[in-house]
Amino acid sequence: MKINRAYRYELKPNVAQRILLAQHAGTARFAYNWGLARRITLYEAEKKSTNAIAQHRELNQLKQTEFPWMYEVSKCAPQEALRDLDKAFKNFFRGLKLGQKVGFPRFKKKGQDDSFRLTGAIKVNGKAVQLPRLGVIRLKEEPWIRGRILSATVSREADRWFVSLACEVEIPDPAPVLGPIVGIDVGLNHFAVLSDGTKVEAPKPLDKFLKRLRRLSKKHSRKQKGSTNRKKSALALARLHRRIRNIRQDFLHKLTTNLAKTKSEIVMEDLNVRGMMRNGSLARHIADVGWGEFRRQLGYKTAWYGSKLTLVHRFYPSSKTCSACGYVREELPLSVREWDCPSCGVHHDRDHNAAKNLKNYAKGIA
């Protein structure tokens, strides 16, 4: 079967290439913001909409007179940015029709949204990648690329540049995993409790570096805007955020890969993570563990490795149901971590009991 897989590597550009990379990112950001402003103005004035193709034609006409500096970069950078904007509007209007809360497209900011996408002649030669208008840029490691390269997305994180190569890969249909069915209950005391009793602890990098993050943030706020010291402070802050994100992603990738390769079916609740993030007391802790990213990675990795992901409705009473006899309690406050079944007398750990009920749901016992 054919799948889309991305290979991400760190670039090792020289000074001239760094300048050119920044120009591409700035042009893509400008095109996106220009297109968003034009769409807003058009709708307010004429109640009409437009699309990426029409906006790209309009921008090409303006490049000759108002934006001649755009000829210094690849035409793909602004073109793909306008396509991303068009996709953002389609997602927004689709969300309105389906009653889902999808945010209105927002303007991009320099230093936060430094990325662009290229298509066309993209090649990988040894420890280097060849990109349109950018030429050959060295990589920090030997790439391992399979399949046909569709596009290259270049992004900046703090002071480092990365390239993500999206490829169409032909892989054999995976053989079904012969492992057991497992129910997973995610939480904050333990990142995940499995139905077999295994408890997985999250690294919680944000909580670990929170004191240092607050200190750097306060230090940054005191710097004079536009000064060199403020730029240095912003760089130190960005590096810490990158380190926190890398620790979290490393943990999630290793855990999801292991589960997808060893379990025939993974059962978990379809939690409303976005809604739970509105809780001011729990929002930071929920964001730190990454429940949404955990579910997203399991979604595509189970398809890759031959296992199955089953999502149970979020209102299924997995915690309140006795996994031994099926008795359902009327109420079970979040503060209650252990309880005894009034029907059969079995003592339950809240999270482990929920995981076993999710497993029973997949087997048709619940």
Rank of each mutant, 00 (worst) to 15 (best):
K123T: 09
V136D: 05
I137T: 04
R146Y: 03
V177K: 12
A175E: 09
E168W: 10
G135D: 07
R117M: 06
E168H: 03
L165W: 01
G147S: 04
V163H: 03
A158V: 05
K127V: 06
E170W: 06
P143T: 02
E142D: 10
G147R: 01
L165H: 03
L165K: 02
L118M: 07
G126E: 02
I145P: 00
D159W: 11
K140D: 10
E170D: 13
R138K: 15
E157D: 13
L150D: 09
T119F: 12
T119S: 12
E168S: 14
R133Q: 15
K123G: 01
P174Y: 12
I171W: 04
F162N: 09
F162E: 10
E157K: 11
F162W: 12
E142T: 11
R146L: 10
A128K: 09
W144G: 10
A175G: 00
T153V: 09
S151T: 14
C167T: 10
R160T: 04
R138D: 09
C167Y: 03
R133P: 02
V129W: 07
I137K: 12
I149W: 05
P132A: 08
R148I: 09
G147E: 00
A121K: 14
K123R: 13
F116V: 05
W161N: 14
L131T: 04
D173W: 05
R148W: 02
V169D: 06
R138Y: 13
I149V: 11
L139C: 15
F116T: 14
E141G: 06
P174K: 04
L165N: 00
T153H: 12
P176K: 06
F116C: 03
N125W: 02
C167M: 08
A128S: 14
A175Q: 12
